[in-house]
Write a protein that binds this DNA or RNA. Structure first.
Lengths: 193, 193, 193, 193
DNA sequence: TATGAATGAGACTTCATTCAT
DNA sequence: GATGAATGAAGTCTCATTCAT
């Protein structure tokens, strides 16, 4: 990685930490620059405005998160295995990227992220919707609301991630599996397709 | 309600809307004053500083929310009925108080709310923990993690609230009941105690 | 004049001097504030932005100038007397308002003055065009170009004003009259209509 | 012209256009460099500072203008022919160099041009004064003010140039001659010396 | 000689808070 | 108690100039 890329990465890393700690308007660009080890003016060579900075951070995090969520997914054969993979991948991402997790939590719905950026990311995450639709179709869950199902899954998953965050325990496959199994049981999803 | 109380209420109402829309630092006190129909200086007769304002708002919302959550709870006899009451009360509050819901979501973990305020509110919400402990003890769920259970419940409940928020549907007891029943099934909580 | 009006006048007076001396971008708003005896922020209570400030100054000067140009004009009976009145009025204004004269000279065609402001002022100065048209019609100067005539007049008048500026002499009716008479002679405008 | 000279010429050409459009402080050196097709740093190999750049531009324009004003002047025999030559030369220069005309108009009296540069150029333009003095002496116009005469001439000439600028007409010897003849008539300058 | 990233002083503007009325 | 003009610290961003490559 060349020098410029390294600096850019440093700025983003610092900005995430500060935005999460102090909020968008609570974080002066001068502080981001200082903690990144660059001059105030230099920051704007990398990101034209503070708004662009937070939007680019949002995009980078969401795309990295997507990478992780999709990891080894193709190896999963059954619907349940697919969901399990996603479940674990997401929780692992949340544990390993606590600052990024908070950033997404705080800013996803904020006005600091432009509608354009939000729309762009929604497109990139359509794959999740597709996976759920596939499962619903295969299982012939005709009377379950698609959106409600996804929200139940995400809620269960994210709050399980929160568990690890609160307890500061490292990821534990067995522990993570309990609420997942409860979720599957609740929608009567068995090991076989 | 006297004139002073009315003005105070108006300020809080306006401030909630603006803080949610534009963030804490993104909302000038002058704008809050203007939209509340008072002079800039007058605001500070009601709230000594902007920080005090946001903290008092947080406290008022949390206490109101608590009132709603506890509504008719004593009438619930079985554990499941108790959970169902809480579940519905919370979702109804979220639907009927969308601005307040967002406010809590955005600022609960922020640094704009002081540690003192947070601790004070945590005390006021100990009642929720007590209810879960009671259920766990009664059911002799010895191998279930208390925290994980609460998080599972809250996650399921809040994401169900999110469903009504996204779809803009009015509260629908039947629709809300589905994920609740799934949750109970997952922890093998039956109608009888 | 109340306190606010006085302060506003002071700011405009200071700003004219500084803009003329140092140019628009060469004059920090902080300096205007300082020399006006107010705090940096106070300036913006009177003029929302620096751009608005320079546009309002332009408008005020042009309207004041118009007042002076029109002074006692209705008393002039013949065409020549009318022109003489305008000639003298304009030169007197230029001598008595050296800063304003420079301001108009520097900024009339600049991009700091918005197209809107320019159009607005052009409308207010249509009266000059009307006066010249009247003279041309009355004299039946059919072969003289209207625009060329006006420019000749204005050129002669303004450069006569420049004479007083360079020599620092006070206004001298006799001296001012020489080039005026030369101008009239050149277009064969006699004392009678 | 070698490569270096060509680049220098390009920079000056671009800078004139930009300074006229946006003012001195409104024109970043980075923009001049960009529009000149060179890197930001390279500009400073040609002109040590921005101040030096605008001063050198001023000098180059004034010297070029002088060249044009003096063109074929020695062929003019009578005083009137001399003035006519200067009149036409100046107007032609103004029409053919609109950007340069504006540059001179905007910056001649500005503080961006150093006193040193101004003095230097005044020396180079002493020839104009000499020509007028010669005419005044020859004609024995004892009761006409020298400065007033020059200003009358320049005013008439420049405002005639303005006519062509406003109407966007190409230079027209006959049209240009009218105000010139009016000027001569006004000072009783005949065709013979 | 040419490049363009880095610098940091300084620009315009905002805003929480005060205080005379 | 209510007002709103005044304050000035602090924010975002620009830009002339330097210098390592």
């Amino acid at each position: 990685m060349d020098n410029k890329k390294k600096k850019r990465k440093k700025i983003i890393e610092v900005a995430i930490k500060l935005f999460v700690e102090r909020g968008f308007h609570g974080t002066p660009t001068s502080l981001i620059a200082k903690e990144s080890g660059i001059a105030t003016g230099t920051l704007f060579n990398y990101f034209k405005t503070k708004d662009i900075l937070i939007n680019e951070i949002f995009i980078e995090i969401k795309l990295e998160q997507k990478e992780i969520i999709l990891k080894d997914l193709e190896a999963a054969k059954t619907s349940k295995m697919k969901l399990k993979k996603i479940w674990n991948n997401l929780i692992v991402w949340e544990i390993e990227n606590p600052e990024e997790r908070k950033f997404i939590n705080y800013f996803s719905n904020s006005n600091f992220i432009s509608e354009e950026t939000k729309a762009e990311m929604q497109k990139k995450y359509k794959f999740l919707l597709d996976i759920f639709r596939e499962i619903i179709n295969k299982k012939e869950m005709k009377n379950i609301d698609e959106l409600m199902l996804i929200l139940n899954f995400m809620g269960a998953c994210i709050f399980t991630g929160k568990y690890f965050h609160i307890t500061k325990e490292p990821f534990d496959e067995k522990k993570s599996n309990e609420p997942f199994e409860r979720f599957c049981k609740s929608i009567e999803l068995s090991d076989e397709d």
